[in-house]
Design a protein around this nucleic acid. Structure first.
Lengths: 130, 130
DNA sequence: CAGGATCCTCTATGATACTG
DNA sequence: CAGTATCATAGAGGATCCTG
């Protein structure tokens, strides 16, 4: 997690953000759909497009496809096309994708252990001003 | 990390997302500025508004203030006003905020260990189609 | 110094329709 | 089935000006 002003080209900060590894990581897993897809495949193993779509309630076709392409590009999952009629496509986590489940588990545990405190803090804060 | 369709009111999925603890967690730390503020305070201890602004290059006044308010509301940091002239405001992580540094460290370690693989996968993917 | 208030611009995301 | 293409929109986020 870089919090430095080094490597910043004069006048632009985009490169600062883009060159930060933690920033790239957040781009990968720091959004709803990516994390849900990873967890779903972590639990379900190899899954078809339609299975993922059903499992992850509320995701639009566009977002699911876009998310899957991004994760495939990052090498976190594989896309396997079976040229039957109709076509069948399966998705599965790579070893790299599987390795990400471990740090995500720590986050999950933190959330489970502390989200109640966060909720209390929010209620307290909102009561005082709002 | 819930990946279930349970608890989904008929016709709406917002509640599904909002009621998921991992979703709330992502709202809290899953964005650039929040994570950078937490890490900055984790490294720097108690810091003034202007120090944070200087440390986190590229953040706008609006986003920094907004992020700090959100983290204060979540009980992750404290805001201390010293009514001098001019006024002085200090921010510091709470024990809850400090506890979040631990799971974030795992993410950081994953990134440091695997981001090179991700970059390679991206380059490979972009070479094949792009 | 540490913001509050405004305006404005993109980007992310959803809805819809079409296809190999 | 598993997408692609297009259109529309809400909200994130930046720039700017003002104040206790």
């Amino acid at each position: 997690m870089d919090v430095t002003t080094a490597d910043v080209p004069p006048g632009r900060f985009d490169a600062f953000a883009a060159s930060c590894p933690s920033r790239q990581l957040l781009d990968t897993i720091g959004n709803k759909w990516s994390s849900l897809v990873i967890v779903a495949l972590g639990l379900g193993g190899r899954m078809r497009y339609s299975e993922l779509s059903a499992r992850i309630a509320g995701v639009s076709q566009k977002m699911l496809t876009q998310t899957l392409r991004g994760l495939e590009r990052d090498g976190l999952l594989t896309r396997t096309v079976t040229p039957s009629v109709p076509v069948r496509v399966d998705y599965e986590l790579t070893p790299l994708g599987l390795s990400l489940l471990e740090p995500m588990r720590h986050l999950k545990e933190w959330a489970e252990a502390h989200m109640a405190e966060v909720d209390l803090a929010r209620a307290e804060y909102d009561r005082n001003d709002g």
